[in-house]
Amino acid sequence: MEDIFEFSELATQRRWLQLLVVFVLFNSTAATTGFRTSGLQFSTKSNVTVPTVIFTQISLEKCWEECTARVACPAFNYYNLYKLCELDILGNLTDVSTSQTFDQSGVVYWSKTEFPTTIPCGPAGSVNCSLGQTCDKNSGTCETKECGPLNVSDEILVRGNVNRVGSFIRLGCKEGYVPSYTRDIIECGVDGQWTEYDITCKRCDEGWTMFHSSCYKLFHHNVTWDDAKTRCGQANASLASITSREENDFINSNLINETTVDDIWIGASSREAERTWTWTSGEIWAYTNFAKGFTTYQPNVCLIVNVDIWYYSPCDFPFSYLCEKQI
């Protein structure tokens, strides 16, 4: 599972490389095949559909060999200070997809000028390696050593970019979304395919405000408590249930303070059972915030909130109402 966090460690190394740069000098046969020194370039995408293959403590020549042995590698970065090789592994073989440039020397960036769909391998090119395969020049065979790009929806956050066989990546949701899953970690399998995941990321509909896993909306129509309950149901919601101080403060700060409305129906009444308050959502009655003088139980009344304090009122009075629904 250590591979999950390898990306963040490498990002830290990159920052040091910006400060501790050294000029790369090399004299090898590889230099005649198209290498060039330039500013550091690499992908900074957070939603990684461009995974990376990383090698440590290898030479520049070996880094070049690893890239040219892969159909899916159009370019690489070589960090001389750490002897670190980073291959870009792309699904689109015509786009290197670099998005940030630094002017310091000390890092070699190399890109292919042609993007073939297969790579000859074996004696006299007797075997052709296809996308997703690597040519092992020692054995002359095509092997699967890493997985290709991830196809995830835009709201999913990919926490990691190491994609060699046996490595793991954790998936999450971008800010403003709520995740639902039983499998949020995927593995690069020996067949070069990522294992299945079931994470979905949801957010509130337009006009609704999110808190934890619920969405809230304040309606300014003055209706009775029963009408408010019905109208919330028509919006696939229920009258809001306030079950903690944190939730009460959130509603006051983000919804009630933004309006001039005074009294607002919320989802509790004392009509369902004798001497008992109940939430229409079925949530446990465990938190209260009644105003002074309203702490004594009163039968057959319904609950309202004014600023962040609770009151009760006859249920047939007309007030605005607050709906809540789960994401």
Rank of each mutant, 00 (worst) to 15 (best):
E6I: 11
T33A: 04
G140H: 03
Q41H: 07
I199N: 06
N151F: 10
V261I: 14
S28F: 00
H220W: 02
D198G: 02
L131Y: 15
G293F: 04
V261Q: 13
P299K: 05
Y181S: 14
V21D: 15
G293D: 02
S313Q: 08
A31H: 00
S126W: 01
D308M: 07
D205Y: 11
S214G: 04
S238H: 09
V96W: 10
K45M: 14
G39V: 06
F219S: 04
W279E: 02
A268F: 02
C147Q: 07
T280F: 13
W110C: 06
T101K: 09
F294G: 00
S97K: 11
I199P: 08
F102R: 06
R170F: 08
G125S: 00
V96G: 10
L40P: 11
E86I: 11
A30Y: 10
C121Y: 00
T141A: 08
L19R: 15
T195H: 13
F55E: 12
V48T: 15
S269D: 15
D205R: 13
S126N: 09
L84G: 02
T209G: 00
S269V: 01
Q41G: 12
E187D: 05
L131V: 07
A124T: 12
F250M: 00
L303I: 01
N289Y: 08
I119K: 07
G176L: 12
F219W: 06
W208V: 00
T296P: 00
S180P: 03
Q326A: 15
S99M: 09
C204N: 02
S253N: 10
I186F: 12
G132N: 02
T37P: 05
C135A: 03
L322Y: 13
E65N: 05
T44R: 10
F168S: 14
P299L: 03
P149K: 09
V108A: 02
G267H: 03
T278R: 14
E196K: 09
E66F: 08
C85E: 00
D3M: 11
C85D: 01
R231H: 10
K292S: 14
E146V: 03
G106D: 04
I242E: 03
I264V: 07
G189W: 06
L10Y: 11
S111D: 06
V261W: 05
T278E: 04
F76H: 01
C121H: 01
C215F: 03
N47C: 09
G106I: 07
T141G: 04
C188E: 10
T296Q: 06
F55L: 11
S180T: 13
Y79R: 05
A286S: 15
K217G: 02
Q100W: 08
K229E: 11
D316Y: 09
D191L: 03
L218A: 04
W285A: 15
L60K: 00
C188K: 08
D154I: 08
N300R: 14
F317C: 04
N80Q: 07
